[in-house]
Structures are given as C-alpha cells and as structure tokens.
Write a protein that binds this DNA or RNA. Structure first.
Lengths: 256, 256
DNA sequence: AAAGCCATCCGATAATCTCGGACGAGGCTC
DNA sequence: GAGCCTCGTCCGAGATTATCGGATGGCTTT
C-alpha cells in the first residue's frame, strides 16, 4: 500500500506529525475529521497524533477545535534569541530601517534558501508583514544573490538544482548562465539588486557580509517600491547607507 | 525491555523527536554522539531522528554541529501572529508598559499553566528577558491566580493536581485551602497580587479579563521590584492604570 | 424521536522504529 | 608520517508500535 521508491523515508510518524503541525499553523481551527480529510489520512491516525501533541503541550484543544500552543511560540523565540549572529546584527539593521525609513533585512542561507533573520520596518515602508524566519529562493532575492556570489560554484549549482528557478515575478532570473553573469557582476560591484524578481513592484538592494576568509555570513538589504527607489540619486544614497551599516556589522563581527 | 504501566505512551518516535528538539533549543551546538549520550539513546536512533529533522528543514548541520533552524522560528511567529486575542490585546499592554514604565504582561491559561502571550518592557523595568510563550504555574503568578479565581472549582483542582504547588520563592502558596481563600479574596477585590511568589523580589499586580459570561479570557499584569511597587500610593496608582487598560481591553474584545 | 456527525476506543496486521554492530573517514598524537 | 581514536554514517534483524478499519457512545440537529 505504501511503497516509496528511494529508501530515504524514515521516521514516517515524525513526518506526519509535522505535516499536521504545518497544516495547523495556517488554519487556526480544525476538527479531527476535517484534518484527516485534508491530509488524506485515517481519522484514527490523526487522532493519535493530535493526542500525542496535546500531551506534549504543543497542541491546545478548545471546544473541539485544535490550535498550536504558545509552547511552540516559546520554542521559536528561544531559538531566535540564542542565535548569536542575529543578536550582533539586529541593532544595526533596526537603525538602518529607522534612518532610511525603508524596510531593512538581514538574511542568511539556510537549507539553500535565503532566510530573513532580522526584519525591520521603516516609517515609509509598506508593511509586507514579513516574519523572521521567512524564506525565499536565493536566486530571487537581492540578499540571496549577494550570498550566492560568494559561495563556491558547486554549492550554487546544488542550491539551484534543489530549488529551481521558476518565474515568480516580472524580473525573475530563470536561466543559469544569466545567473552566473549576474553573480559575476555582483562580485565586481559589491552590490546586488533585485528588480521585481520575487515580488512585483519591489526593488531590493543588498550587500554581502563576509568573514575574513571571504565566506558569506549573510547579506544586508533595503527594500521598497520600485517607483521610489529607482531614482538614481536616492538609490545612491541608500547604497551609501547600506554600505556604512554593512561596515559596522563587519566590525562588530570581527571584534568578538 | 520497555514496559510502560499505563497505555498512554503512543507515538514514541514523535516523543523522542521532541525530546531532541527540546534539548537542542538550549544548547546551541551538539554532536550526534554527545546528544545520544545526554538523552541516553542509541547513536543510530538519534542519527535517524536528526536526519529526518534535517530533511524536513527544521535542523541545520553546520560543520558537524546541529542547531534548530529558522523554520521553527517562522513557525512560532506564524502561530503568534495569527492568534487573535493577542492581536487585540497587544497594543494596550504595550501602552500600559510605556506609561507606567514597568513591565506589563498579558497571560492566558494553556495546558494548566499561566502563559504570557504579550510581554512588554517599560523604561524602568529590569529586563527579565521573558519571552512570549513563557509559562509559569497558575498558583505562583498574579495572572495565574486572577484567572484561577474565575475558573470552575473542578478545573482549579485539576490544574493544581497536575502541576502541584511547590515552594518556588519566599511567598509561594503551597497549601490548597490557603489558595482557596486567596482566590476568594481576589474575586471580591477584583485584583490579584503575587508578592515574591514565583521570583524573589518581584511583586506582581494583575486583574482578570472576563467575557460576558464571566469566563476568563486571561489576565493583565504589571510587575516590578517589590521595593518600588510596595509603596501604597504608587501601587494604587498602578492599580488604577491596570484597571483602565483592562477596561479598554474588555471593550475591544466585546466590540468584535 | 430519530438520524447524522464526531471524537474516542479497540484490536490485528504489518510496517517501521529501534538498536547493536560494522565501516570508513578525519583529526590528533606520538 | 603513521597509527590510533573518535565520530558520523550505514546496515540488518527483531520486535515493538504505528497504522488503519471498524465499532461505540455522546452530542447536536432536523
């Protein structure tokens, strides 16, 4: 009844538990039967997973509806707080957003995806409601490309292979050779742009943050509406601000 | 080899996975062998759990050390953001902290524990570094007692039975009848105090937030050093501020 | 009052998790 | 530079245990 081709599928019960969690994080309220139907699993199986999660304190049962508990919130916050790079980088990113009035991000590569570890809003910024931990394709984002530009080619290939380069917005790069030249440009310029490559109407400007050996810690980004940011003077001003902030971060990182 | 008395231990693999996650959230870096030793599990078992978590994107393997990924951060943030009560209550709590200069909290009962869903710092507040989702005993905290006071007696018993009432700080209530009279006092006064009951030197003042039927949504709290807060005038002033804020919250909750 | 829905429980089958052991690679010491 | 030690990974067998269909009983609905 269940024959997986490769033998990579161990710990199925763990997998289905996380499938349930993933489904529950969006839809706040469910019922056992509904969930079972959605996930195409037997009711009794879902039930046993739910009771286990409940016993572990990760799931709350209120009036027959289920929701993930604040224990998971606490877990996430704990991870976030104990992440050292984030702690060092965070103040600078906040300041950058405050001073420019635009959105500022710091992202690292995680699982081959550009992962925002700091998200800061400026006064002018339209709230995109991006959350810490949000992930996007490396080839789509300014931060992602800035990081890719300083990764060994084989890792770049591996990442592209894993996640592909599908069209996500008008400007998305979908061709591997085009990406290669783009990364070359980023390396020489020291700046990565993403013009409506992941979100329509959004312009992103990023610089890589490197360690002493030239390996990327991550990338620092400012993002905003294309219309406002694509003015040459303003953009140069922003680039200046990012580079100053980036410099500050690199100093803070090498200090300790 | 493994004989559990009761038959409540289903989904063991899920349990051990969360045991691993729990261990990993504190100690940022581990190795397979170390983890296995700590948790007293076979190396190979731990290994299969780690690879599964890695495949699911919840675990990052950097230079042989493991850490939980920002995917879990994102999960927590998503849960937090989609929690409606928190969204409604949050601004008022922030304002309360800003205006009083003290720490302000909003807590609900979850799994029989007082769970902070909003944590706000004031100017004067010593940073306790409490995170959203942090949990404490209901009988220890002002918020917990404020909520308990408006829960049916059988639920109170159930909660006390489950978590006990161990001495945690000088003022901890450890006796059930004492708790009962305390809850009665809280009901008549409308205010719950916790004088060094969970943390030494900490005074907490809380009021319950009830719905139209008198069931508790949660409780609103101000906390600070006993020395400062135990001045009669100042405390009355704070009570006034809490009650105003609580009123605002109840209005906001009944509006929608 | 009856019917439907739902959560929970049960038991048997077989899938799959566990666990000891073995292999190979990398780093350290001598 | 060689040998040793530790660590991560892989493998296979056995037995636990997860899965799944079905049955029960409570609750609401019509």
């Amino acid at each position: 009844m269940a024959q997986q081709g490769p033998k990579t599928n161990q710990l199925q019960s763990v997998r289905t538990t996380f499938k349930i969690i993933d489904s529950l994080k969006r839809n706040t309220a469910e019922s056992v039967s509904t969930l079972a139907e959605q996930l195409e699993l037997p009711k009794s199986t879902v039930h046993s997973h739910l009771t286990t999660l409940n016993q572990l304190g990760y799931l709350i049962n209120e009036d027959g509806t289920y929701r993930l508990s604040y224990r998971l919130v606490h877990l996430g916050r704990t991870i976030e707080q104990s992440h050292e790079l984030r702690r060092i980088v965070s103040p600078t990113v906040e300041t950058l957003a405050a001073e420019t009035g635009e959105q500022a991000y710091f992202a690292v590569e995680e699982n081959g995806l550009a992962t925002n570890i700091v998200v800061a809003e400026g006064e002018r910024s339209i709230r995109r409601q991006f959350l810490p931990g949000g992930q996007a394709r490396m080839t789509n984002t300014a931060t992602g490309k800035a990081i890719l530009a300083h990764l060994p080619p084989e890792r770049v290939d591996e990442i592209v292979q894993r996640w592909g380069m599908p069209q996500a917005a008008p400007g998305t790069i979908t061709d591997e050779t085009e990406l290669a030249t783009e990364l070359e440009t980023i390396r020489t310029d020291g700046i990565a742009y993403a013009r409506e490559e992941s979100v329509k109407g959004l312009l992103e400007i990023a610089i890589p943050i490197l360690d002493d050996d030239g390996h990327p810690h991550g990338a620092l980004e400012i993002a905003g509406p294309t219309k406002r940011l694509d003015d040459d003077d303003y953009r140069h001003e922003l680039v200046d601000e990012i580079e100053t902030a980036g410099n500050e971060i690199e100093v803070n990182l090498s200090i300790r």
